[in-house]
Amino acid sequence: MAYSDKIVDHFQNPRNVGSMDTASPKVGTGIVGAPECGDVMKLQIMVDDKQRIVDAKFKTFGCGSAIASSSLATEWIKGRTLDEAMELKNTDIVTELALPPVKIHCSVLAEDAVRAAIADVKKKMNGKQENAVAGAHAAAK
């Protein structure tokens, strides 16, 4: 099977490989997996006060297409707001990397990872607000 130059490039020179502090309130972590192939993907985002993604990192243990998909996804979501990043579609990754049909699930995995990371950081932000409210209530009493 012939792979596109873009897949090979992202596979050989993956962008944004690494980890961030999972415990940080500004960091959202998404860990997803594909049970049929056993691939696991961790994608993390760091947001600023305006909910803009200032940094993204990933670690993927899986096939070249899964690595390329997550590498591309981190590139794309950097600089976007959370709402904008939610618009990322796996089909965009498929088109950009010219993924073969059997590797489409790799792009789905990357999309799921982005969404999971966004959900995680949103949960943290909401929790913080609730804590702040709860704290305010406690202080009022």
């Binding site: 860990i31 997996g33 594909a34 696991v40």
Partner: peptide, 12 residues
């Protein structure tokens, strides 16, 4: 396609 609770974090 689910797996038990924290399996993915554990695998990672």
């Amino acid at each position: 396609r689910e797996v038990p609770g924290s399996l993915l974090a554990e695998v990672m």
